[in-house]
Design a protein around this nucleic acid. Structure first.
Lengths: 182, 182
DNA sequence: GTCTATAGTGCGATAGAC
DNA sequence: GTCTATCGCACTATAGAC
């Protein structure tokens, strides 16, 4: 499915997309980052768009892993907190990456009508807002994920060390949801 | 200061940056959007970076207008709500633009150490969190602005009409800050 | 799976006429 | 303030050897 060579390309592209945007990243930059030629990259992915897709799907898979873990919890309250904590962890440990990839306009248009993404958002919405959340709850989920992602990217926040950032984000995210405990 | 020709360039560039990212937007695209040649664009701005700067400063000016209006209010509570409402209005009426410009990695690095941006964020922080907010309050401000901006860009939310979006965002933003009234 | 070499296109930027 | 024309370069993508 995903070879070692492909995994190297995805990892390199992810970092470069985050730093320069999708449009500002060339195949030459990706090839140089791994230490191979452009042709070697083209052997794995026929077009740049395929690379963009692969990177985005890889990030989406990381979110799905969080969802699966949360859905395995015994109670809805535990599941909600696991989802919340998992999203915070994802944003903090991968910092600018997962996060700024998903806010790139190119990726946004590529996935705006993607069923897979809708499905993931629905699962996340269900975990965070409960099964009986109306359509309004989707805005709440969107705001929360944007708040978490956007905060770690923020120029004035990025100096903080991971542990305090994680703790503060968790606290504020819980407050947004109206949850007090852990 | 800013001529009519420059204003046309900034407006065109803003829309294109939002759709394709800064790196994915060429000077030819900007020129075509206005209906002039590349050379005409170069007559106004000597480099692409100058255009990027001008666009970002223009967006920052829109935020400053909101701040000035809020700071003119009589009470801190009124000022806070005016700032909150102003930021929501900005995000909703300009939708993907103000918002996705400021999240572009190229713009982010260009302004990460910009005194002007820090000043604007401090004023916003003071309005939203009060004068005695510690350093932790900056994270709260960053989360709130990211939540507002990110929510209007979100693929699953962008279908909503402006009025309901504005109302719901305002409600949720107030809840995040722990304010109940209007 | 990687390379060199190259085709063809579009880029940012400049010169000079009107 | 706008144009045409052009430079030199980097880009995406392909062909073919190893």
């Amino acid at each position: 499915m995903t070879s070692a060579a492909q995994a190297r390309i995805i990892a390199a592209a992810l970092g470069l997309f985050a730093r320069h945007g999708v449009g500002g990243t060339s195949l030459q930059m990706i090839a140089d980052e791994i230490g191979v030629s452009k042709a070697a990259v083209y052997h794995q992915y026929k077009t740049k768009e395929e690379i963009v897709r692969a990177v985005a799907l890889d990030e989406l898979a990381a979110v799905e892993a969080v969802l699966a873990e949360a859905e395995a919890k015994a109670s809805p309250a535990e599941a909600r907190d696991a989802a919340l904590q998992g999203m915070v962890d994802l944003a903090v440990t991968r910092r600018r990456q997962t996060t700024s990839i998903l806010s790139d306009p190119v990726i946004g248009r590529l996935f705006a009508r993607d069923k897979h993404l809708h499905q993931v958002m629905s699962r996340l919405n269900r975990l965070l807002m409960g099964p009986d959340g109306g359509p309004d709850s989707h805005l709440e989920t969107a705001m929360l994920t944007a708040a978490i992602s956007g905060a770690v990217m923020h120029p004035l926040v990025s100096k903080r060390d991971d542990e305090t950032l994680r703790a503060q984000l968790t606290l504020l995210a819980r407050r947004f949801l109206g949850v007090n405990g852990g």
